[in-house]
Design a protein around this nucleic acid. Structure first.
Lengths: 325, 325
DNA sequence: TTGTACGCGTTATCAC
DNA sequence: GTGATAACGCGTACAA
């Protein structure tokens, strides 16, 4: 493969002149410029981007750490990141972790190795203190709320979102309120749990353990939920559901087996998925796409300006009332 | 940041010895090995991966070219790619194109620049001849069927899949058969169209123009389809639908407005999405995840062995009969 | 306006 | 076992 020196020889100029022409710098005579481009043609030259990265100490690559891709939540976030990355001329390097700590650490090590200029963390398993340490060496933006440490963060306030939906239910007279959750360990789930405990305590209701449905991630899980619900002695009259996908599963299975919604069971989902609109599911709209966009912009700002004013940005949510609640 | 020379100085050895230790080569005395690792600790050293890439002429990165990420089809494919990439120690660089030719060319240029070792193309807009040209310089694997050129390809035979579903419908007595499609220009859509024309001709039916519903990509589009269907004079008695998402849209809206399925309208979707199972939609199962896996493995084989025996791999489909057809 | 020479950080090839 | 030293390919002061 031809390199910049071959070009210089072919065009009869120096390597720096070649470099100037290739990168569009001024102060190069028209004839030399032309000679260089002709050499490029003749030798079928292409710049080796790895060498550029090494020489410049920058890659214009941003890493994205997420557990799964094939999931409405994460694929929406990454779509937002991708859109903004494209706009600012950055590329995206994917780190799918499956919540495996080893893989998360691998991604962070890659950041230290300067494989990318910065990292966006969509969700994770390892402790904040780890990120805090790596943050000293390279820019990291997190997509989850964190209070104890000082990070660059863009997040949806799941506590408020959950509380909002709960207050709505309480106002409508519900007292036996349950909820479905994905992974209980995640910060989002913790926030939801906290809101649940707080609001129910405030209205003087003692939540029952079996009103909480764990491991609800996909459409299919909704089916299981409604089956469990059917088998219960003291059934909740309303459920806040992880996501609209799961809520859709509940609603469809309920229809199938003749459970009337919302008369017998009120359902509120999260996300504002097109499926929720189609099925008339009341939901809390969450701005996932915007989350990705803002996360990238925050990182971009950090990369371009270089200053490290820790910053948090909170994204608003909105209750969309439809037929199920 | 400390580099390999700093390490050498600190440990009192040469850079070559440092390199040997860092990369686990034999023939290094235990004491020097120890000295190097101590220096690594002391100087908080991390290898600069860009320099490694430049020196080795390999990146262990594979590019993935796709139009969108936030789409069940593509996110399944990329999940499959990702899984295999992880297994073989490769990283994934994302090229979201939105079917914009400029961006597709940009991805191909990046391949020439050796930013990645190979490229997997999930879907595209530019002509085959372009890929054919770039293929001379670096490995490319395509996820669509192509007959005119000689490529590395893994694909689902959409012609056969469509024909299979059509024959099933014909056997059940349907003659007025229509179909929904996403982008008509894609090779998959072309294959489906060809199957449609062929099968209907064979059974002596002249397809009507309005039996073909274009631009059907998402759940919401299903609603539009059923509305159009309602307004028609001579309605098709059966529809083959782009994807289960769109099929679900049709089925749900049909239920809502009281169109009986399958009595008035038979529906067959594609993908075998969980939503199809939940709604009892008859569908042709398409192995998207496997497609991604196989695509990566093919590329991997090419990268590791270096030989270029052009190869095509076809993936099987399966008709899953449920309630809607 | 142009060219020389060095830096970027690592790996690979020799010679010892 | 070990150490110089030359690649790898490009960017960029600095000098001219």
């Amino acid at each position: 493969m031809a390199n910049i020196r071959d070009l210089a020889k072919e065009a009869g100029v120096s390597v720096s002149t070649v470099s100037r022409v290739l990168n569009g710098y001024p102060y190069v005579s028209e004839e030399k410029r032309k000679a260089v481009w002709e050499a490029v043609e003749k030798l079928n030259y292409t710049k080796n981007i790895q060498a550029v990265h090494l020489a410049k100490g920058r890659t214009m690559i941003v890493g994205v750490m997420l557990p799964y891709i094939h999931h409405p939540y994460f694929s929406a976030v990454i779509e937002g990141i991708s859109k903004e990355a494209l706009r600012y001329g950055y590329q995206l390097l994917l780190f799918q972790t499956n919540y495996d700590v080893e893989r998360e650490l691998e991604a962070l090590e890659r950041l230290r190795m300067k494989q990318m200029d910065g990292l966006i963390v969509c969700s994770h398993e390892v402790g904040w203190e780890i990120f805090d340490a790596y943050q000293e060496e390279a820019p990291i933006v997190l997509c989850e709320q964190v209070t104890e440490y000082d990070f660059f963060t863009v997040y949806i306030d799941h506590y408020q979102a959950f509380a909002k939906a709960l207050h709505y239910l309480v106002k409508k007279g519900h007292r036996r309120i349950g909820y479905c959750i994905g992974r209980r360990t995640g910060p989002n789930s913790q926030a939801r749990e906290a809101a649940y405990q707080d609001v129910l305590r405030d209205v003087g209701v003692t939540p029952q353990r079996q009103w909480i449905f764990d491991g609800c991630l996909f459409l299919e899980d909704g089916k299981r939920v409604i089956e469990q619900w059917m088998a219960m002695e003291e059934r909740p009259s309303a459920l806040l559901v992880t996501s609209d996908q799961v809520a859709a599963g509940i609603v469809l299975e309920a229809r199938r087996i003749g459970v009337r919604i919302p008369e017998e069971l009120t359902i509120i989902g999260f996300d504002n998925d097109p499926l929720a609109e189609m099925l008339g599911i009341t939901t809390v709209a969450l701005p996932h796409f915007t989350l990705g966009e803002k996360a990238f912009r925050l990182l971009h700002h950090w990369l371009e300006t270089g200053n490290v004013p820790r910053k948090q940005e909170e994204l608003p949510t909105r209750l969309v009332v439809r037929a199920t609640g």
